[in-house]
Design a protein around this nucleic acid. Structure first.
Ligand code: FES
Ligand code: FES
Lengths: 146, 146
DNA sequence: AATTAAAAAGACATTTTTATCTTTAATTAG
DNA sequence: CTAATTAAAGATAAAAATGTCTTTTTAATT
């Protein structure tokens, strides 16, 4: 469904949020240890998100990534789009060059419904909300063996 | 969502079905021209499906791919699983090593719902039914520019 | 039997995705 | 100001997915 980059990106940002108490900044190394993701690869993703102004960062000692006030209401949909683009939300399920109402593929209507359902879900989920789940211990960002 | 291989595979099989009147066999070349897919790549996919007994084939002059009687009730879900496996239906949306009820990721419940919804849809769609849409002209298997 | 046509199999090439390592620039602490 | 620390940028590598070409096998037709 989502690319690896997107999976790491989402987990990283949720983790940043979950620790984001009053100007605390988190280094890539810490983040990646916590979410069990490859360090340099995840760094690239976060750098890209910073460029797109979805997260903030500062260099130097005690630097790291954090969420600023105006980034507070980021939705999961924004994050996914920033990393994976909108092919998932616009493209044809059977790979036709364009998804079209007038010349639909045989699964168009159903696929479109699923797609829109997914987009709705992702737009209703804020990172803040997801982070709360993690903070409260109801959810986790790295595999815990049974 | 689906891999390219899966997209081509689905389109190819639906096309075979749409032409499958009384023992007619279709060559890869014809199929790929019709569905606008790369020939040799699609051939590989069909060969794999033939090995898994989801489609039938014969070599030699007038040979090609076709659907036998016992393959008639193939569901779209079977096809997707045969090509892409079941990661889409079993895996965690955020890429945790396992999707788990007891140690869920923050989107587990919603993602699971989407996933199951998708599986249900794909299991309700028979290739026969999708092919009918194409035969009747309601749907297409290759891009038609507006 | 020989020829031909087509899938099957295998080898190879390209592109994209994922991952790692190195160098540079910015910022803070001392 | 200097040293230390960290993100940013750039270069490289490895793996996976996608795509193409060649050879082999099978089966029909002549
Ligand atoms: S045309 Fe295929 S999903 Fe719309
Ligand atoms: S644990 Fe992530 S989807 Fe179930």
């Amino acid at each position: 469904m989502f690319s690896k980059a997107c999976e790491y990106g989402i987990r990283a940002v949720i983790y940043i949020w979950s620790q984001n108490t009053k100007g605390v900044k988190l280094g890539v190394k810490d983040i990646c240890k916590e979410i069990d993701a490859p360090e340099f690869f995840t760094a690239k993703i976060l750098q890209s998100l910073a460029k797109q102004d979805l997260v903030s960062s500062t260099k130097g000692p005690n630097g790291g990534f954090y969420i600023s006030d105006d980034q507070e209401n980021m939705r999961l949909l924004d994050l996914v789009k920033a990393i994976d683009g909108d092919k998932l939300f616009k493209g044809c399920g059977l790979g036709l060059k364009q998804c079209s109402e007038s010349h639909p593929c045989p699964i168009h209507n159903d696929y479109k419904a699923i797609r829109e359902n997914l987009a709705k879900l992702l737009s209703e989920k804020t990172i803040k909300g997801l982070a709360k789940e993690v903070v409260s211990g109801k959810a986790t960002l790295s595999t815990i063996l049974e």
